[in-house]
Simulated scan of single mutants.
Amino acid sequence: MPQEFVPDDNKSEPPNDDSAASEQDILMLTIVGSPKAVRKTILTLYRLGFAEVNDWSQLQRTGNPKQVMSVLIRRKVSTDDTAPRQ
């Protein structure tokens, strides 16, 4: 199992575009569970002001017939890479 996380020198790495990384941070959140649990979590995150319900993807099937998943992709334009203001 630990070998799965060791880099393979024979595989090429994706190009590193530092200019794009400095301009924009991308965060992808995935919720996996029963349809009821996923919907409830999305609603809870909405009530907390985290994301609009319509920002999440439609429920998608997983390899487990009793589970679904939904994805949220957040893009935040970054002006500075310093620590958060206090």
Score class of each variant (00 low, 15 high):
M1K: 08
M1I: 04
M1L: 09
M1W: 03
P2C: 04
P2M: 03
P2W: 01
P2R: 03
Q3N: 11
Q3D: 15
Q3C: 05
E4A: 15
E4Y: 04
F5D: 10
V6S: 08
V6Q: 10
P7N: 06
P7F: 00
P7R: 12
P7S: 07
D8R: 06
D9M: 10
D9Y: 02
D9E: 14
D9C: 02
D9H: 08
N10F: 03
K11V: 10
S12W: 08
S12T: 14
E13P: 08
P14Q: 00
P15A: 14
D17V: 11
D17Y: 05
D18F: 05
S19L: 12
S19R: 14
A21C: 00
S22N: 13
S22W: 05
E23A: 14
E23M: 11
E23H: 06
Q24I: 08
Q24A: 10
D25L: 13
D25S: 14
D25C: 09
I26A: 03
L27R: 12
M28G: 09
M28S: 13
L29A: 09
L29H: 07
L29K: 05
T30D: 01
I31F: 13
I31P: 03
V32E: 06
G33E: 01
S34G: 08
S34K: 11
S34L: 02
S34F: 03
P35Y: 00
K36C: 07
K36M: 09
A37W: 02
A37R: 08
V38D: 02
V38H: 04
V38C: 11
R39F: 03
R39W: 01
K40L: 12
K40I: 07
K40T: 14
T41W: 05
I42R: 13
I42H: 02
T44M: 12
T44S: 13
L45E: 07
Y46W: 06
L48K: 15
G49A: 09
G49I: 06
G49M: 01
F50S: 11
F50I: 14
A51W: 04
A51C: 10
A51T: 11
E52L: 08
V53C: 01
N54R: 07
N54Y: 01
N54W: 02
N54D: 13
N54T: 12
D55Q: 14
D55C: 04
D55T: 03
D55L: 00
W56C: 03
W56F: 10
S57Q: 03
Q58G: 07
Q58S: 11
Q58H: 03
L59A: 06
Q60E: 14
Q60H: 10
R61T: 14
T62W: 02
T62V: 09
T62R: 02
G63F: 05
G63A: 12
G63L: 11
N64Y: 04
N64I: 06
P65K: 06
Q67Y: 05
V68C: 05
V68R: 13
M69E: 05
M69I: 01
S70V: 02
S70Q: 02
S70H: 00
V71I: 15
I73N: 06
I73T: 15
R75H: 04
R75N: 07
R75A: 05
R75K: 15
K76S: 07
V77Y: 06
V77L: 10
S78K: 15
S78V: 15
S78C: 13
T79Y: 09
T79G: 15
D80N: 15
D80Q: 08
D80R: 10
D80E: 09
D81T: 12
T82R: 13
T82H: 07
P84S: 01
P84H: 05
P84G: 00
P84F: 02
